[in-house]
Design a protein around this nucleic acid. Structure first.
Lengths: 255, 255
DNA sequence: GGATTGTCGATTGTCAACAATAGATATTCC
DNA sequence: GGAATATCTATTGTTGACAATCGACAATCC
């Protein structure tokens, strides 16, 4: 019996203080309320969140692991500067790992996750017409995670989960252009289903190729919409993304 | 202990207390002195290492990140049970990331690292005949890391470094069969050089294929020698590796 | 007898004070 | 005036004590 990943997460959500702080502070960083490169002072944060420095310290380690802050011993923690390139890099790494997951799952799947993936596909099909791009993106993420677990490679699943956790995603998922049209959703749902079918008949090459197309499209849309958001919000100083190499990046991602 | 030792430690060893503890405790785990599944009690460790619980706490987080311990909030830390499969999984993930690095570096290299890689290749060539398998393995690792950096993808480089850090490697690198014969070293050096050549002429496919061959051979040797060590040492109870699926694994890795 | 609930000890979570350090500022010397 | 050095302050590293929580054992109830 497979457990539902998301209910699992919700059940064990931020119970401990450091995790709560990490969640909150991470949200502030992603939202741009903490500016790029800003120094994070433990005592100040402690007062701000109404806790002692201990939990703050651990929260900073958590955010460091999620690559939202940069930490040097005895030199303090800083909000990590994000660039469009770093987001593109993230997509590249995610793709490499996801394709490994697809190939592995198509070769020697953990049977129970095939059913889970089938359910996700059904969900996606059902959501093609109902027009909520964000919900659709969320289920897509879940399906990708299912493939990771279905590979039976625990390390791989954890690494992919870590990448997804890098809250940069939040910025991207909220991008208004992702999965916005019915056609885009239709194609994504179809690609996920053909991945599922390929896995069922143990056709690793086909599974990899469907998954690659799905993820490439996803990446291109995300980068495009992110750069639009960036341009639009730059004037307000909301986002702290550096835009060096922007056009070059978009050219690359299309290739 | 002499002052030379102290200076050596101060210069090269982990500067901060938690890192030192993590290093030491991690070594104990890898060496099998802490048994698989054993509970790690903070106060006990604190007394054992002569520090307070704070640094111990952070050390445990570090080891959790290196996948050497399993930590559940309010429920304590346990040394993570290692299996041959988990090592094989590690190799799979490393290979996926390294091939991405090779492809990226062959497509858009960070020029300066091409020279570094050339130096590594020269070092390898020079070491083919001198017969130190461990030193050869170390330089190979360094060359792989150079490719990671040469891709210009910082996240990728960090992820690969993390994987290398997972001290499981120590076990593997010390395995007496790795790079033991002149022929094996010759082929590895040649493959690394052909990777370099491919990168120089921007031939991504060739770079990936050389790198794949190199890493596959490396993995097969490592898994084979690790399973031998395991079998040999099992009687002494030194290693705490579980051996489920051993033969299956080796069959897979040959494919 | 088996399951449920209450209590207890061991262990982790949190805190506030103390020590050590890095970076900035002021001072001295040339 | 500029560079090197000394001092000083803000901030992180570390500690020991206190509070909250988990798991186990025992007492109770059916």
């Amino acid at each position: 019996m497979t457990r539902d990943d998301d209910e699992f997460e919700r059940k064990f959500a931020p119970r401990t203080l450091p995790e709560q702080v990490a969640e909150e502070l991470g949200a502030e960083i992603v939202a741009g309320r903490r500016k790029s490169g800003e120094r994070l002072i433990e005592l100040e944060l402690a007062q701000c969140f109404g806790v002692s420095r201990g939990p703050i310290r651990e929260a900073i380690r958590i955010l460091e692991r999620r690559r939202l802050v940069d930490f040097n011993p005895r030199r303090g923690a800083y909000v990590r500067p994000l660039s469009l390139k770093s987001v593109a890099d993230l997509f590249d790494v995610r793709m490499a790992l996801s394709l490994l997951a697809a190939r592995t799952m198509a070769t020697a799947p953990v049977e129970s996750y095939i059913d889970t993936l089938a359910r996700r596909c059904a969900e996606l099909d059902a959501m093609v017409d109902d027009g909520d791009p964000i919900a659709f993106a969320r289920v897509t993420t879940r399906a990708v995670r299912t493939v990771a677990h279905g590979s039976g490679n625990e390390l791989l699943a954890e690494q992919l989960a870590d990448l997804a956790n890098q809250t940069v995603w939040a910025t991207i998922w909220k991008a208004p252009l992702d999965y916005q049209t019915r056609e885009i959703r239709r194609e994504a749902a179809d690609l996920m289903r053909s991945t599922l079918d390929a896995i069922r008949r143990r056709d690793a090459a086909a599974a990899v190729s469907s998954q690659r197309k799905l993820l490439e499209d996803d990446r291109d849309r995300a980068l495009a919409s992110l750069s639009r958001i960036m341009a639009a919000a730059a004037d307000f100083g909301v986002f702290s993304l550096e835009d060096r190499g922007k056009s070059e990046l978009l050219a690359n991602s299309a290739a």
